[in-house]
Nucleic acid binder design. Structure first.
Lengths: 200, 200
DNA sequence: CAAAAGATAGTAATCAGTCACTATCTTTCC
DNA sequence: GGAAAGATAGTGACTGATTACTATCTTTTG
C-alpha cells in the first residue's frame, strides 16, 4: 500500500487539520512539528517542504480558524430574523463550533498568551478584535431596533458576550466534557439576555 | 553586598514571586528555570536545591495563588453587608487581584491548558472547582434571602460570573492594559447583576 | 523524463536536571 | 568568647534528551 503524495496546497490544509485535531487533546504550546507530522503520517522533515517555519504553520491555523468562525457567524447572523435573534444564533453557532472543534479555543488562548510579534499572534488579535467590533455593531442595531434598551452599554455587553462563551469553554476544559457545553449554553445565554434587557 | 544566602523556605517564596512576576509579561509555557533563576539573581542549578522538579515550582505557584485568592475573597465576602453585596465585593476583589498580579490569570490559563496529571494541574483544578462551588453556595444564599429570584439557575449564574471576569481578562491581555479592567469591570458587572435579577 | 513530494539522516541550540566543589551560616564545646 | 565542626545555600560546568530546521538522496506522478 503506497502512501499517496499530496499536492502542496492540499498538504497544507491537511496540516492545519492535524494541528487542530492535536490541540483538542494536547496543550498547543507543547505540540511539536514531529507530533504534527506523525499525526498526518508524514516525516517531520517533509513538513518543512510546505511551511518555511513552525510559526508559519500556526499562522495558517489562525487563518483557517478565522475563516471558519467568520463563515459560521455569517450563516448564523443571516439565520436570525432580527438583530437580537441573530445575536442568539451567533452565540449558539460559536458554541457549536467549539464543541465540534475543541482545539480551536485552546489554540486561540495559547496564541494570545504568547509574547513577541509573530504573524500568528497578529492574526489571533485581529480575529478577536474583529469579533468584538462586529458584536458592538450588532448590539447597536438591536438598540436602534428597540429590541434592546437604547441606553445599553454595548461595549460592556460585547465584552460579556465573549466572556460568556469563555466561561463555558473554561468549564469544558476543566471537566473535559465539551458536548456538555451545549446544554449549559442555553441556560447561561438566557441570563445574559436578561442582563442586556432583551426578550426573545 | 547584594548577595545573601536565604533560608530555604524564604528562597521558595522568592521563587514563587519571581515566577508570578515573569508571567506578567511572558508566556508561562515559555518560562524556563534559567529565566526564573536569573530574575532572582541565582544560578539555575541552585533552583533545584529547593525544588525537586520544575513542576514542583509550578505547584508551589498554584498553592500560593490559591491562598492569595482565597484570602482576598474571604475579606471581600466579609465586607459585604448581605449575600448579594458580598458577591459584588468578591467580583471587585477578584478584578483588583488580577490587576495587581497580571501573571496570575495567565498562569491559571496556562496550567489548565496542560495535559497529563501533574500536581500543579490538580491544584489549578481544585482552585477553580472550589471557586465555582463557593459561588453557587453564595448565590443560593442570595435566593434564600430574597435578594435574587428563587428560581434563579445558580449554576449557570456561577459559570457566568467566572466568564465575566475571564472576558475582562482576555480583553486586558489583548490590549495589554490591565488597569483599564477596573473601569470596565463595573460596567460589565451591572449587566451581570441585571441578568441574575439582582438590585443593589 | 523531470519536477514535485517524501524519506533519511543529519545539525546547532535549548532545556531540565546533576554534580563536585565552594561559600556562608549556625551550633558545639573548650 | 571564639575556634572548630557540621549544616545549609550557591556556583558553574556538565549531560542527555528534545527541538526546529536543513542537506541530500529516493520515490512518486503527470
Amino acid at each position: 500500500m503506497a502512501r499517496q503524495n499530496l499536492p502542496a496546497a492540499q498538504r497544507r490544509e491537511v496540516t492545519v487539520e492535524a494541528v487542530v485535531d492535536l490541540a483538542a487533546t494536547r496543550n498547543p504550546a507543547e505540540i511539536t512539528t514531529g507530533q504534527i507530522a506523525e499525526h498526518m503520517h508524514l516525516t517531520q522533515g517533509a513538513l518543512f517542504r510546505h511551511f518555511p517555519t513552525k510559526d508559519a504553520v500556526w499562522d495558517a491555523v489562525m487563518v483557517w480558524t478565522a475563516s471558519q468562525l467568520t463563515r459560521r457567524l455569517d450563516q448564523a447572523e443571516a439565520r436570525g430574523s432580527s438583530p437580537l435573534s441573530a445575536l442568539e444564533q451567533m452565540f449558539l453557532a460559536h458554541v457549536d463550533f467549539v464543541v465540534a472543534r475543541p482545539g480551536v479555543p485552546r489554540i486561540l488562548f495559547g496564541e494570545l498568551q504568547r509574547t513577541g510579534d509573530t504573524a500568528a499572534k497578529r492574526s489571533a488579535r485581529a480575529l478577536i478584535g474583529g469579533y468584538r467590533t462586529r458584536l458592538v455593531k450588532l448590539l447597536d442595531r438591536c438598540c436602534a431596533n428597540a429590541e434592546l434598551p437604547a441606553d445599553l452599554d454595548t461595549e460592556a455587553a460585547a465584552t460579556l458576550f465573549v466572556g460568556t462563551i469563555q466561561g463555558l469553554v473554561m468549564q469544558a476544559m476543566m471537566t473535559g466534557d465539551f458536548p456538555a457545553m451545549r446544554a449549559m449554553a442555553g441556560r447561561v445565554f438566557s441570563i445574559y439576555l436578561k442582563g442586556i434587557g432583551g426578550r426573545l
